[in-house]
């Protein structure tokens, strides 16, 4: 046994050396299969300033369905950066479902951004809240998130984040979650196919629950382990839903105000 262990150790070392020597590049001409095809690397070994993004992408590539591992905060990792990079990755991965939604979710089929029947979401990307169609809402939300997450005002660095900026992630999450809910309630085949491939919604739900970025009652899309919750969320009384929808609209309006101040950088009240 001891011998075996030492052999394993040597083997690991060999692997380490190999992974160190390996140049992690996608050179022109490389096939789709060989894209990012290199040995995994520990977070500590990554010298890049974008190590967290690399690490998250590496975990996703290894097994996108292993949500727990992907969300496991590494030792000594700044939580703000960890959350920020994850939200970036969610937005990135949501591009794919948007591409698929574009094929059947058109302004004519889904004129409003809805999940369940009573909830209409107003698009917060505009200076004045707008009742955008579902696909517009999706695109605008993602574009807006991209701008916010790349804003030199709120996120000038991807290594050091201000606490006030990290708090912005909550509203980004709340908004992009509606893309999941819309897809789930209105484009179920696309959603199922996508979820099976990427487990993105599951990852997202776990993520926002873990870091308390959204309230649990607003997470209306069931994920695998909580199939039963679907029924409960559907059996809410009409009255409650109406109230919540009003609340949601109010909430949305306050968000819109927030957004407005983002659109006018001269307004320093928020900074």
């Amino acid at each position: 046994m001891v011998k075996q262990d030492s052999y394993d150790g040597e083997f690991d070392e060999l692997n380490n050396v190999k992974s160190l020597l390996f140049i992690r590049r996608n050179r022109p001409g490389c096939s789709a299969k060989k894209w990012n095809d290199w040995p995994d690397e520990d977070l500590e070994e990554m010298e890049s300033t974008l190590a967290v993004q690399q690490y998250i992408q590496q975990l996703i590539k290894r097994n996108p369905n292993d949500v727990e591992t992907i969300l496991q905060l590494p030792d000594q990792q700044d939580e703000g950066v960890w959350k920020y990079e994850h939200v970036r990755q969610f937005c990135l991965d949501l591009n794919l479902i948007t591409v698929r939604l574009q094929q059947e979710c058109t302004p004519t089929t889904c004129t409003q951004m809805t999940a369940t029947e009573q909830w209409i979401f107003l698009c917060a990307a505009h200076k004045n809240p707008k009742e955008c169609s579902a696909i517009d809402y999706t695109r605008h939300t993602l574009d807006g998130a991209a701008c916010l997450l790349n804003s030199s005002r709120y996120f000038p660095s991807r290594v050091n984040l201000k606490d006030s900026s990290v708090q912005k992630l909550g509203s980004v999450c709340r908004r992009i979650y509606r893309i999941f809910s819309h897809a789930y309630f209105h484009h179920r085949p696309i959603y199922d196919h996508f979820e099976k491939e990427t487990s993105l919604c599951k990852r997202f739900t776990k993520f926002v629950t873990k870091y308390d970025l959204m309230t649990s009652d607003s997470l209306i899309v069931p994920i695998d382990e909580e199939t039963n919750d679907l029924c409960s969320s559907n059996t809410e009384s009409d009255k409650n839903e109406q109230i919540s929808s009003i609340q949601e609209n109010n909430l949305e309006k306050t968000q819109i105000e927030n957004e407005n101040s983002y659109h006018k950088p001269s307004d320093e009240s928020e900074a």
């Binding site: 574009q102 695109r139 993602l142 574009d143 701008c147 030199s152 005002r153």
Partner: peptide, 21 residues
């Protein structure tokens, strides 16, 4: 007008399902 303003893209093309090369 304001040097702090980020330049935002004016359009985003989404159709590719992988990296654009």
């Amino acid at each position: 007008k304001n040097s702090n303003t980020d330049i935002e893209p004016i359009y985003t093309f989404r159709k590719h399902t992988g990296p654009v090369l």
